[in-house]
Design a protein around this nucleic acid. Structure first.
Length: 622
DNA sequence: TTAGGGTTAG
């Protein structure tokens, strides 16, 4: 009977059959209990196995090993480590085969202290020559970025297999030492597909995208068949390079070589489309996927948010929830960004409540996106509250708050925050300076703005970009210092663009500086000869100065250059229908009502002191 | 042992 039971326990039983046998073992064959537990563990029936395991007075080291490795196999790393501690405390001797699943668990949980203790045990028990023990140990050091320790373990391994090399290559990759990784790769006498993939991702993760692509090509030249992981990595390189052509070549390669398009490859393809701006192709890929996890959903939602299509991001987010996929931090960040773009406080608040109730506010990405949403949707005090309660803040959190305050008219507070940021040694970046210079512009703080601008290079080692120069030009212009603005433009280290000349032009018109207006609009004409607006502006400038002939010449120039005047219109979307506002058009059936309301608004605005001037020639057409 | 998604400006 005992022999029969042992045989049965080796087969694939249903849990019901286990329960029947359990009864038999408890009453008649208690000595078979460990074998019973082994049978359960073999089939990963872990909870039941653990219940029975806990009733065994002194489990053997073999049984402990099985328990630990099953936990590790099921990714229950914490349970694996707890079981290991229990084993160690019970006095059961740790054997060689205990170490790999325990180290794997330490790596996954980044349990450094325990890992160090295990390393000592490995030395104490003399397991140091065992490649199966050393590899996961080295992998641990590699993954936490302690490349020196990883290398030390690597050097101690007597007979090194490709896995050892691969582990250390990814260690070098993580610590950014591309040269050492490549050297190690070159030293290998026998490479596997993992070695190639590790090298490709080493280049990809360290910004050497072209090198990564070259590695992929070299791999094929040397007759190594790329697998799904290779192509997913290469697709992510194409995404980072925004190289749609290369991405499509990789897709063709996948099809021609019958590589399996699993979820990760599909998501990588989707991401490649998104980053290249081909959002509709991404959506098509998304719709073709037979299985979609939260990463696939998040990638598509982010795709819409990043490409200025926030309504679709929001729509997809709702669809994801209706499919019972629980949103995670990444999905929330993207959908919050979509709400910011829409200025939709209602949707934003709904998601904000969810974020707070589920504890996502402790995630620095989510909290930054949340505070940005509140500030863009007009609830600046809620934005402040989120910011003040953040347990950790990164440069993006600070930037979001500074930009939010500046945009909401709290320029001085934004500047104070910038000072505080520097005080606690958070390194400002280029975006910080765009935000802070805008704040100075709004508050009319010319001297301070200039001082901060000059400090960019001298104190913060940030080279100003065209955006920063544009901020300073705006700063001069809004203070009425047009001449200074012009001189500044002439001294700039970058070529002025249309934003810069446009800023000077509009200020010149406000301050009736004909000379500068003429100068800047001519520059605009040089930069964009196809823009009809520039011709009209110049023509109007001459006309208003009574220089009729020149005015006419510009109009004629427009004809010779075949520039057509395009009508500028504004539009709103209501009930899925787009309504356009165009100057001088009364064709819309509701245009009488529209005018009535616009007139009413104009009157109210005049009462509160706004000078409406001639801004009311809008009518409505659909 | 290798692989996928995120926030800030203009």
């Amino acid at each position: 009977m005992e022999r029969y039971l042992l045989n049965v326990l080796h087969s694939s039983l249903h849990i019901k059959q286990f329960k029947q046998i359990h009864g038999l073992i408890v009453t008649n064959y208690p000595a078979l209990t460990p074998f019973f537990v082994q049978g359960l563990l073999r089939l990963s029936i872990i909870v039941y196995a653990r219940q029975v395991f806990d009733r065994i007075p002194q489990p053997s080291k073999i049984l402990y090993n099985s328990l630990i490795s099953t936990y590790s196999k099921l990714s229950l790393y914490k349970e694996a480590l707890d079981a290991f501690v229990l084993m160690h405390d019970s006095g059961a001797r740790v054997v060689c085969s205990t170490i790999p699943p325990v180290m794997k668990s330490c790596t996954s949980l980044l349990a450094g202290e325990l890992a160090n203790e295990i390393h000592s045990l490995v030395v104490k028990y003399g397991f140091s020559s065992d490649v199966f023990v050393q590899t996961p140990l080295m992998d641990f050091y590699a993954k936490i970025g302690d490349i020196d320790s990883a290398k030390k373990v690597f050097d101690e391994i007597f007979v090194k297999d490709p896995i050892c090399y691969n582990c250390l290559i990814s260690g070098y990759s993580k610590s950014g030492d591309v040269v050492a990784a490549q050297q190690l790769f070159d030293e290998m006498s026998e490479r596997t597909v993992v070695s190639w993939n590790s090298m490709i991702s080493c280049y990809a993760n360290n910004g050497h995208y072209r090198e990564g692509l070259r590695m992929f090509e070299r791999m094929q030249v040397e007759r190594f068949r790329p697998n799904e992981i290779s192509v997913a990595t290469v697709l992510s390189i194409c995404a980072k390079l925004r190289d749609l052509e290369m991405g499509l070549r990789v897709k063709k390669f996948i099809d021609e070589n019958n590589l399996c398009i699993n979820m990760i490859v599909s998501t990588a393809l989707l991401e490649m489309y998104v980053k290249c701006g081909a959002v509709d192709d991404a959506r098509q890929e998304f719709e073709h996927m037979d299985r979609r996890d939260v990463v696939a959903w998040s990638a598509m939602i982010a795709g819409y948010a990043q490409n200025g299509r926030p309504s679709e991001a929001l729509e997809l987010f709702e669809r994801m929830k209706s499919k019972q996929i629980k949103p995670n931090d990444v999905a929330l960040v993207s959908v919050l960004s979509a709400c910011s773009q829409l200025g939709s406080l209602e949707a934003g608040e709904r998601i904000g409540n969810y974020v707070e109730s589920q504890g996502f506010v402790f995630n620095v990405y989510v909290a930054s996106a949340l505070l940005d949403m509140y500030s863009k949707c007009g609830n600046i005090s809620k934005a402040r509250q989120i910011f003040n309660h953040m347990p950790q803040k990164d440069v993006v959190s600070w930037n979001s708050m500074i930009v939010g305050l500046a945009a909401n008219g709290f320029a001085k507070e934004a500047i104070n925050l910038f000072e505080k940021m520097k005080e606690i040694r958070v390194k400002p970046n280029d975006i910080t300076f765009v935000g802070i210079l805008t704040a100075c512009t709004h508050a009319g703080l010319l001297e301070l703005g200039l001082r901060i601008f000059r400090s960019m290079k001298s104190d913060h080692e940030i080279t100003p970009t065209i955006e920063h120069y544009a901020c300073v030009v705006d700063l001069f212009c809004r203070s009425g210092k047009l001449k200074d603005a012009h001189e500044f433009i002439c001294r700039m280290e970058v070529e002025p663009n249309v934003v810069i000349w446009g800023t000077l032009l509009s200020a010149s018109r406000i301050h009736s500086n004909l000379e500068l207006a003429e100068f800047s609009v001519k520059k605009l004409l040089e930069l964009e000869p196809e823009n009809s607006g520039n011709y009209i502006l110049l023509s109007n400038i001459y006309a208003s100065a009574g220089r009729w002939e020149e005015s006419l010449t510009v109009r004629n120039l427009m004809t010779t250059n075949r520039v057509q005047k395009t009508s500028a219109y504004s539009w709103i979307e209501m009930d899925n229908k787009v309504h356009k506002f165009l100057v001088g058009d009364t064709s819309h059936p509701g245009s009488n009502d529209v005018y009535r309301i616009v007139d009413g608004l104009a009157m109210q605005s005049t009462w509160v002191g706004y000078n409406f001037e001639s801004a009311l020639e809008f009518s409505w057409c659909s």
